[in-house]
């Protein structure tokens, strides 16, 4: 399992990685990007199985990144979970219509991210992680 975390702060990326490891993705290969442009370059070079992306980032924000990704046939099936403090119900609906897997508001707990992503865990990973 290869997971790309897109966020402009190092600590936010580390926090997300720590949460994912805690819920069972401890054997995942983690990739990181600081904004949408860097993320697209990394995805084209080495497509991940799952993407977590913030919305507010310099260079290219998360919404633009999602729009471009979902327009590329080779990449559009990669699930993208948006994690952001800038969301509200109306914006959430827009992002879901654009193809986001889900929109998780910050702050999120380990339990909340587990509920969204448990379907991506193997039975073994699930048993090793938060769900057991």
């Amino acid at each position: 399992m290869r997971i790309l975390i897109v966020d402009d702060t190092t600590t936010a990326r580390l926090f997300a990685q720590k949460c994912l490891a805690n819920i069972g993705f401890h054997d995942a290969e983690f990739m990181q990007a600081g904004h949408g442009i860097e993320a697209l370059a990394k995805i084209r070079a080495c497509p991940p199985d799952l993407i977590l992306s913030d919305l507010m980032m310099p260079e290219m924000d998360g919404e633009t990144f999602l729009k471009i990704l979902k327009a590329e046939p080779a990449l559009q099936d990669i699930p993208v979970l948006i994690v952001s403090s800038a969301g509200n119900p109306a914006h959430r609906e827009i992002l879901l219509a654009m193809g986001a897997l889900d929109v998780l508001p910050k702050p999120f707990s380990t339990t909340e991210i587990y509920e969204v992503l448990k379907g991506f865990l193997t039975e073994e990973e699930d048993a090793d992680g938060w769900g057991d």
């Binding site: 936010a12 507010m56 509200n88 109306a90 910050k106």
Partner: peptide, 20 residues
Amino acid sequence: ELLNTITGSLLSTIMPNQQF
């Protein structure tokens, strides 16, 4: 990151139907 998260959470609560 903390300030960003707190601000988003605050605004989502005091103006739940308003884009910001």
